[in-house]
Simulated assay, not measured.
Amino acid sequence: MRTAALYTSIGSLVLSALAAAPAGAWEHPGSAEARGTAIAAARATAAGIDFAACPEEEMLPDSLKCGTVKVPLDYAEPDGRQLELTVSRTPATGPAEERQGAFVYNPGGPGASSITFPLAGELPEWKEIAEAYDLVGYAPRGVNGSSAPLSCQDPAAYTKGPTDAPTHPNQEDKERRVARAKAYARGCAEHAGETLRHYTSLNNARDLDVLRAALGESRLTFMGASYGTYFGALYATLFPSHVRRMVFDSAV
């Protein structure tokens, strides 16, 4: 487990660099990306989400239901190629008149999925939240087979841990880590090609707004952890009027 976690951290560091928003990337209200997001959100509102049994490969209990949301690969071209993001949900367990809407969670990464998150409602600590909210998890773009995976290296190589994990790395150790990270980044570029530039934090935030719309929510209740706090903050910057409540845990 330790070696797998270490390699995951290497990949996450590289994907963080790939996902970081460049200076001056904030779009103006009338930009092509802003218009594309509004179009995608309107379509998602009309389509909603058809929740049914989750894919067998997810190996999830029957109490959890899954569906998909379509988002543009490129928000500047909302009529172009579409990605399907997998979404999971458990409905609020309390009285209907006390329901407060959907509660969306992202655990960070980058590259982590919250598909199993709604199962947290079965824990005593989450009972009151599960009574008031539909608990919603999802797989962001690039995360798994159902959400347009971004493949950066052979899975066998990814799960093979490095031979050393020194507590106090020397310069040679650091150079090896840098070399592995660069090789990982090259793999992302080689596998994804031109589409790589669309796997960004800004597009993650836009996807989140389309998910909000598909859930039928006028404003978003969101909890993010680690990297999830970063693009949650991007979301609040891009869509301040769409925020209901946000909780940031282990803020980046």
Rank of each mutant, 00 (worst) to 15 (best):
A205Q: 08
N204S: 13
T200L: 07
F231Q: 02
A17I: 06
K174C: 04
E77H: 11
D79E: 15
S147G: 04
H198I: 06
E194I: 06
S241Q: 09
G216H: 14
A157V: 15
G228V: 10
T116Y: 05
T167F: 12
M1E: 10
A46V: 10
T8P: 00
P240H: 02
G145V: 09
A213E: 13
G187H: 11
P155R: 06
L119S: 07
P162E: 07
P61Q: 01
G11Y: 05
S250C: 01
T3S: 15
A156V: 01
L215S: 10
A192Y: 10
F239H: 05
H242W: 00
F231G: 02
I10R: 14
F51D: 07
A5S: 15
L73E: 09
A120M: 14
L150A: 13
C188N: 06
L13R: 12
A96I: 05
V104Q: 05
I10G: 06
I129C: 12
P72I: 09
A23W: 01
T3H: 10
I39S: 09
F222C: 08
E175P: 00
G224A: 13
I129A: 15
D249W: 00
A4M: 12
A53C: 00
R2G: 10
T68D: 04
G80R: 08
A112I: 00
A38E: 14
E58Y: 14
F117H: 09
S9F: 08
I39F: 12
A76H: 02
G108R: 08
A96N: 03
E128Y: 07
Y133P: 11
M223W: 09
A157E: 15
R176F: 06
I115D: 01
S241V: 02
A17H: 09
F239A: 01
F248R: 00
Q153C: 14
A185S: 12
A213R: 09
D209C: 05
C54I: 08
L211E: 05
E77N: 13
E77L: 05
N204D: 12
R89G: 05
G108F: 02
S88D: 03
K65H: 09
G24E: 05
G101Y: 01
A96C: 01
E98S: 08
E58W: 14
E56F: 01
G187E: 06
I115S: 02
G48S: 12
I115P: 00
A47S: 15
A5I: 13
A183N: 08
A130H: 10
G11I: 02
L215D: 09
L208D: 07
R244L: 00
L202T: 09
V136F: 08
